[in-house]
C-alpha cells in the first residue's frame, strides 16, 4: 500500500474516515425530522466563516465552525419564533452566508475566489496537520452526541410534542442537533466540500433505509456506507486524479441506486412472508372471480 507512505494521504484518509462516520450519524436525525436540506443551508453559512478565516488569518476550519454554529443556532431560533415567515428568514441567512464568504475572501490580502474553491468542493491534498487535529476533536464531539444521546435525539426527532410531555429538554436537544450538524459541516468541509456536505449526511441514510426496518440498523448501515464511500472516493481520487468530493458523493448515490434495485424483491418477499405468517392468511391481492373478470374485460 504505497498510498500510505505519503503523510498527506495518511491525513486525508484519517479525515475521510471521520467524515464518513460523522456525516451520516448527524444526518440520520435530520432525515428523521424531515430537515434533510439543513446541512446544505449550514454549508452556505459556513462560507462566511471560511472567508473571515482568510481575512483575519485565523484557521478557516475553526472560523467556519464558529460561524456555522452561530448560523445553526439562529436557524433553530427562527424555527421557534417565526414559524410563518421562517423560510424567508432562512433563505436570507443562506444567501447572505454565501455572499459574505465571497466578499470576505476577496477583501483578504492576496485572497481571491479561487482560494474558496478548495473549501467548496473539497481538496484532500491540502489537509494540514492542524486541520487534522481540529477534525479529530470536532468528530469526537459529534460521535459523543449522536451515539451517547441517541435515545433522546430519536425521541425528539420522531415526535417533538410527545418528547416535551415526557419531560425531555426539547429546546436544548434541538439546539444540540443543530450545533452538531454545524460542527459536522466543518469536519467534512475539507474532504467533500461545503456544497456537497449535505449529500453525505442524507444519501447514506436514504440508501440504508432501503434495507432496514429499525433505526439502530439504519444508523449502523448508513455509517458503514459513509465510511466505504469516503475511503473509496479518497483512494480513487489518488489513483485517477479526480476530485475527491464529487467522487465520494457519486459513490454514495451509486450505492443508493444499487440498494434500491436490490431491495425491491427483498421487500416483496418480506411482505409475502408477513402475509403468510398472519393467522387466516391476509391475501396480498384482491381475488376477482374468474368468470367476472372475463366479463369485465369483454365489456371494456
Amino acid at each position: 500500500m504505497e498510498i500510505l507512505n505519503y503523510a498527506f494521504m495518511q491525513r486525508a484518509l484519517l479525515a475521510a474516515v471521520l467524515v464518513g462516520i460523522t456525516a451520516p450519524a448527524v444526518g440520520i436525525y435530520l432525515v428523521q425530522r424531515r430537515q434533510a436540506l439543513m446541512g446544505d443551508g449550514i454549508g452556505h453559512v459556513a462560507m462566511t466563516g471560511v472567508g473571515l478565516g482568510f481575512l483575519l488569518t485565523w484557521s478557516p476550519v475553526w472560523m467556519a465552525t464558529l460561524v456555522s454554529v452561530l448560523g445553526a443556532v439562529f436557524m433553530e431560533l427562527v424555527r421557534w419564533y417565526a414559524r410563518t415567515r421562517g423560510d424567508i428568514a432562512l433563505a436570507m441567512l443562506f444567501y447572505g452566508g454565501m455572499a459574505g464568504g465571497v466578499m470576505f475572501i476577496n477583501l483578504a490580502p492576496g485572497g481571491s475566489t479561487t482560494n474558496l474553491s478548495s473549501f467548496l468542493f473539497g481538496s484532500l491534498s491540502t489537509v494540514s496537520e492542524s486541520d487534522v487535529t481540529a477534525i479529530c476533536l470536532l468528530a469526537a464531539f459529534v460521535v459523543l452526541v449522536t451515539v451517547g444521546l441517541r435515545r433522546q435525539l430519536f425521541a425528539v426527532s420522531q415526535d417533538e410534542e410527545f418528547a416535551r410531555v415526557t419531560g425531555l429538554p426539547v429546546r436544548f436537544l434541538n439546539l444540540l442537533t443543530a450545533i452538531t450538524a454545524a460542527v459536522t459541516v466543518s469536519v467534512a468541509m475539507r474532504v467533500v466540500g461545503l456544497l456537497l456536505v449535505s449529500a453525505l449526511m442524507v444519501v447514506p441514510v436514504a440508501a440504508a433505509q432501503q434495507l432496514t426496518r429499525s433505526f439502530a440498523a439504519t444508523f449502523a448501515i448508513a455509517v458503514a456506507i459513509g465510511v466505504s464511500a469516503t475511503l473509496g472516493g479518497t483512494v480513487t481520487s489518488y489513483y485517477q486524479d479526480v476530485p475527491p468530493g464529487a467522487t465520494i458523493v457519486l459513490l454514495t448515490i451509486a450505492t443508493f441506486i444499487a440498494l434500491t434495485l436490490l431491495a425491491t424483491p427483498l421487500t416483496r418477499r418480506r411482505a409475502r412472508a408477513l402475509a403468510a405468517a398472519q393467522p387466516g392468511g391476509d391475501p396480498a391481492e384482491c381475488a376477482i372471480p374468474a368468470g367476472r373478470k372475463g366479463r369485465d374485460e369483454v365489456g371494456a
Binding site: 440520520i28 432525515v31 428523521q32 425530522r33 424531515r34 434533510a36 435515545r151 430519536f154 425521541a155 426527532s157 420522531q158 415526535d159 410527545f162 418528547a163 415526557t166 441514510v205 433505509q209 432496514t212 426496518r213 429499525s214 433505526f215 439502530a216 439504519t218
Partner: peptide, 15 residues
C-alpha cells in the same frame, strides 16, 4: 412513523 424506519419497540421505548 418518522422520516427514518423504526421498529415498534424503538418507538415505544421513547415513552
Amino acid at each position: 412513523a418518522g422520516g427514518v424506519p423504526a421498529t415498534v419497540t424503538e418507538v415505544v421505548s421513547s415513552g
